[in-house]
Structures are given as C-alpha cells and as structure tokens.
C-alpha cells in the first residue's frame, strides 16, 4: 500500500517535471525560432534559416 502510494506520487512528480520541461523547451524555441520582434529576428536570422524555421 505504502509502496503504491509512493510509486504514484513519484510518477506524478515525473509527469509534472516532464510537462514543465516541455513547456520551458517550447518557450525557448519559440523565442529563438519564431518570435518576430525585430531585435530577436535579426539576431537569430541565420539560425532560423539554417534550422528550417519559417523566418520572414
């Protein structure tokens, strides 16, 4: 019983961590690859082209 509770809470911690990491990763590639603000676009221009993001 205790083991089951622990396993359940461990896996919930795992899922929460995974979801948060996915959100963070998605946020980073949105900033580096997709946000059209001029400064970001110019700084990341070559990377966006080379990495296959829609650039402008």
């Amino acid at each position: 019983m205790t083991t089951q509770v622990q396993t359940a809470s461990a896996s919930r911690a795992g899922i929460l961590s995974a979801l948060f990491a996915i959100a963070l990763g998605l946020g980073i590639i949105t900033l580096t690859g997709h946000v059209q603000a001029a400064a970001l676009h110019d700084a990341a221009h070559d990377v966006r082209h080379a990495t296959g993001f829609p650039c402008h």
């Binding site: 961590s17 995974a18 979801l19 990491a21 996915i22 963070l24 990763g25 998605l26 946020g27 980073i28 590639i29 900033l31 580096t32 690859g33 700084a43 990341a44 990377v47 080379a50 990495t51």
Partner: peptide, 15 residues
C-alpha cells in the same frame, strides 16, 4: 542562438 535552440530541443527530448 543555436545553442539555445538545441537546449530547448533537449529539454523536450529529455522530458
């Protein structure tokens, strides 16, 4: 920006 982009990829991949 390439290092940042691949760190973003790595976060999703490892999750």
């Amino acid at each position: 920006f390439t290092m940042l982009t691949y760190t973003g990829y790595a976060l999703m991949l490892i999750a």
